[in-house]
Simulated scan of single mutants.
Amino acid sequence: MINWGFLGAGSIATSSLAPAVHATAHASLHSVAARDAQRAAALGPKKTYAAYQELLGDPEVDVVYIALHNSAHRVWVEAALAAGKNVVCEKPIALSTAEIDSMTAAADAAGKLLVEAAWNRWHPRTRAMEALIDQGAVGEVGHVAAYFDGIAPAPGNYRLDPAQGGGALYDVGYYAVSATLAAFGWQQPAVRDVRQERWSAHSADRLTSFVLDFPGGGSADVFSGLTGDWRETLRIDGSTGSIRLVDPAFTAGSLSSVLEVSGDAAADFSRTYQAVDPYQLMVAEVTRALQDREAYLVPLSQSRAIAQVIDAVRAYA
């Protein structure tokens, strides 16, 4: 049995990760550390702690899930690794390339697993899209249009606060950048034409859009927003065809989802994926990896590539 411990008992831990651990074979929600004891207990762990460091000192915890706001990721990822724990951290795992390099070095030094909880990467549709591109199903990718406009945060939400790693780019832009880099084989692009709006002069970004130019001449138009006009679309155009993820392009899970391939008339097809819990798929794969079984994990090199693009967009803005 692989024992999971959570730092934080917020909305994602409550609605997604705790149910995923409870539903996964060979996984147990051993403990939760949170400031609110009732919220921690509501997740159904065997133990609760009032202090994060106390959980890290629990010898029975095999893997720690970091469910804190973005600006707290680095310090607690590195604290968990130093305590000898494997770590799964909510996306974005880091607020800069320098942060992820520091975390990676800490994981290497500890000899422990570190995985970014980019949950949609475990969705069967996302994995199929990446496989189709790798197999050359649409030829050489020339253009990507990635658009994610999500819900506007409520007053007081950390997404409004730049000091806590808030904003559209870190929150929903992450998904659009990830899909775009996957389409171009994780090459590093140049950034141009950045446009950014904020809720107020000192808030995080309300929306950020930009163009990415890739080696070989391909490009991408990327939009990330938290304006409340919820829309998620992704289109990948190649030399012999196109792939489209029908809205919701990035956060499918509780609903069925569709992938369309078009081009050569004989090869056109559409696939429908039934509702699935990508969080449970992620927890199951991490659990398998910790049992020394074959598992699919998102590599830190790809997490770093996403951080590099976000760094470049922020520097341009």
Rank of each mutant, 00 (worst) to 15 (best):
V63G: 05
K85T: 08
K112E: 11
S200I: 09
R231Y: 12
V172S: 08
V32W: 00
Y273N: 00
L132C: 06
E294V: 09
V298I: 13
D62M: 09
W186K: 10
V191C: 08
N120I: 01
F214W: 04
L245P: 02
N70V: 13
D149S: 14
E285V: 00
G150Q: 00
S301K: 11
N70K: 12
D101S: 09
S178W: 14
M1C: 03
A79N: 13
L281N: 02
V283H: 04
K85A: 13
R314L: 13
L255K: 14
G166P: 03
Y52T: 03
S224N: 10
L169W: 08
D171A: 09
L212C: 07
A80Y: 03
R127D: 01
V64F: 05
T227L: 10
R293Y: 08
H22N: 11
V177N: 11
I2M: 05
A176S: 15
L68H: 06
G253D: 10
S256K: 14
G241R: 00
Y158F: 15
L290N: 13
L207F: 13
G185W: 05
V222C: 03
G57N: 12
E197T: 04
Y65M: 14
D264Q: 12
V75L: 14
H22I: 08
A305P: 06
Q38R: 12
T126M: 05
D161C: 00
A145L: 11
Q135I: 02
V298D: 14
V283T: 05
V87E: 03
G139M: 02
M129H: 09
T24G: 10
W186D: 09
G10A: 04
G44D: 11
A83Y: 10
A220L: 07
P59H: 09
I93Y: 05
K47G: 04
G185E: 07
P45I: 00
I93Q: 02
D247V: 03
R195E: 15
D161W: 05
G225R: 01
H26G: 01
F148T: 04
V61L: 04
G241P: 03
Q280Y: 03
V194S: 07
G167P: 05
A83M: 13
Q274D: 14
Q53K: 15
L132A: 12
R271E: 15
A40I: 02
P215T: 10
V77P: 01
T14Q: 13
V115P: 02
G263A: 07
A152Y: 08
S11H: 13
A27G: 01
A152N: 13
M1Y: 04
D311C: 01
